[in-house]
Write a protein that binds this DNA or RNA. Structure first.
Lengths: 121, 121
DNA sequence: GTTAGTAGTAAACAAAAGGTTAGTACTAAC
DNA sequence: GTTAGTACTAACCTTTTGTTTACTACTAAC
């Protein structure tokens, strides 16, 4: 994307729709945090609830279902184990979010610094 | 970021906090859409309300205030004009979101294709 | 003088998201 | 036998978010 580039209305609409689709999948208070927790090896329900600070079981359960629908994780039941163990494993596809995480994390960190500086001044 | 890289807990926390700070500023249903509308040259209140499909005046008003606090726009009153014209101009800083838009738009577009394919199969 | 446009705000309400509590059913440790 | 852990779900409540309607106050066009 070059400085000062202008877009056709169609391009612009695609752009905006893309952003909205992305936010639909990973936006909101919890989804990115959950995916990050999954990728970091926390794969069980109670473990996730402990890792993702402040989330309730109800909300976690809903979010996991949505993430599964969107192909970011797979619910794996180990029926042989006792008690039955359920694992939520991130898919290969979840790794495609790496750049999204990176860019958001980077911008967020810079933004915080900027806001703190402005408040001091 | 290399494949399979592991993070220290501190790095991971910074990363997550960054993502959350970013989502705090541009997350939610409307903020990115508004910023995109601003950058595309729609700078007046009623114009924005027409451009950002479905937003109500109250919500637009609130969102604009938050975006101003976060340094993404400036509220400029042209008192000499009659009737008084108010412009919401995106700041230089708003351009720093370009990469965020680009990555989200890209991922969202790819994701939609993937979901559509999976549903067909 | 009526309509439409400028930029909003206030009040009342509805919908969505999230939290709290309790409960299922089973196991393993103390 | 009590406590804690496994993985949730249902019911109920609160908070947040968003919508609708009405209103201000002024101007310009028809």
């Amino acid at each position: 994307m070059k400085e000062g580039t202008l877009y056709s209305e169609a391009q612009c609409t695609r752009h905006i729709n893309g952003v909205e689709d992305a936010l639909y999948v990973v936006g909101g208070k919890w989804k990115l945090r959950i995916v990050i927790a999954l990728v970091n090896g926390h794969t069980r329900f109670n473990e996730l609830q402990r890792t993702v600070n402040g989330i309730s079981a109800r909300v976690l359960s809903n979010e996991l279902k949505q993430l599964e629908v969107n192909g970011l994780l797979q619910r794996v039941v180990q029926a042989d184990q006792t008690p039955v163990v359920v694992e939520y494993v991130p898919t290969e596809y979840a790794k495609s979010l790496k750049d999204v995480f990176a860019v958001l994390a980077d911008w967020g960190q810079k933004h915080k610094k900027k806001i703190l500086l402005n408040d001091k001044a």
